[in-house]
């Protein structure tokens, strides 16, 4: 056995592996979490939309996930638009986040917030959604947050909450789709495209995550507005706004 001082895995691999395990476990759709002792946001809240961290891949015949620039841009646009529409229905205003210009310290803090959120998201996915990794110190409670550093986002924008979205999605190329069909005929299983993501709503006054949701399914197509709507609806299920 190894002696190991630090175990800090490469970011996307954690999520891809979580996805893989959950698929292998029979696949689940979405389950959301609410933060402890967190008040429900009032109607007509200002919500800062942090630029969604999205990459869309094409799954080629060789099994490779090849990033597609055009699909990714389309997905970012669709997701942003759908999020704004959904939130508008509850009377909230979605403000897209613009990183500060010419203020290096502030830019640096806000970059750290984004990176911290990613690791907190990974932590939640591992320790709240996979029973064998439950933490006794988090039993029956959900009190993760980003700390007071988020105040700089509140000061810059006047928003009360921030919405973070993380998505990775891959779509089979025609070649691979044909292969999957062929393989299925022969009784061999081949992995198709995988969709994985999470979203969280952070209270910019306290830094606490008031709502967290994991998305995991094999359906939904972020490249088109109509199909993106379904995926976003699932992602935002049970959000308190």
């Amino acid at each position: 056995m190894e002696k190991q001082l630090f175990v800090m895995p490469h970011r996307t691999i954690v999520l891809l592996l979580v996805a893989a395990v959950l698929i292998a476990c029979g696949g689940c759709v979405t389950t959301s979490q609410r933060g402890d002792r967190c008040a429900t946001p009032p109607p007509s809240t200002n919500v800062l939309l942090i630029e969604p961290d999205i990459i869309l891949f094409e799954l080629t015949a060789g099994g490779l996930e090849e990033p597609r620039a055009d699909w990714t841009e389309a997905a970012k646009a669709n997701v942003g638009k759908k999020l704004a529409e959904i939130l508008q229905k509850t009377g909230d205003k979605l403000i897209p986040h613009q990183p500060p210009v010419n203020v290096p310290e502030r830019t640096h803090t806000q970059e750290q917030i984004l990176k911290l959120h990613e690791v907190v998201g990974q932590t939640v996915l591992i320790h709240k959604y996979i029973p064998i990794y439950d933490l006794p110190t988090k039993q029956g409670c959900f009190d993760w947050g980003l700390g007071e550093c988020v105040k700089s986002l509140k000061e810059d924008t006047g928003a009360d909450y921030a919405l973070f979205v993380y998505l990775r999605d891959s779509y089979t190329s025609p070649g691979r789709a044909a292969l999957i069909v062929a393989a299925a005929i022969l009784g061999v299983g081949l992995q198709g495209g995988v969709q994985l993501g999470f979203a969280s709503l952070v209270d910019l006054q306290t830094g606490q995550i008031v709502w967290f949701n994991r998305l995991m399914s094999g359906v939904g197509d972020l490249r088109t507005p109509e199909a993106a709507e379904k995926a976003i609806q699932e992602l935002l299920a049970n959000n308190p706004l």
Partner: peptide
């Protein structure tokens, strides 16, 4: 305070929020 503890191949690791966020290791 109370911690969550795991064993990493002979090293005790203590954490409250998750080892990706903070951890105390005894070597």
């Amino acid at each position: 305070v109370a911690w969550s503890q795991a064993d990493e191949g002979g090293i005790q690791v203590w954490t409250i929020d998750g080892p990706l966020l903070q951890a105390l290791r005894f070597v």
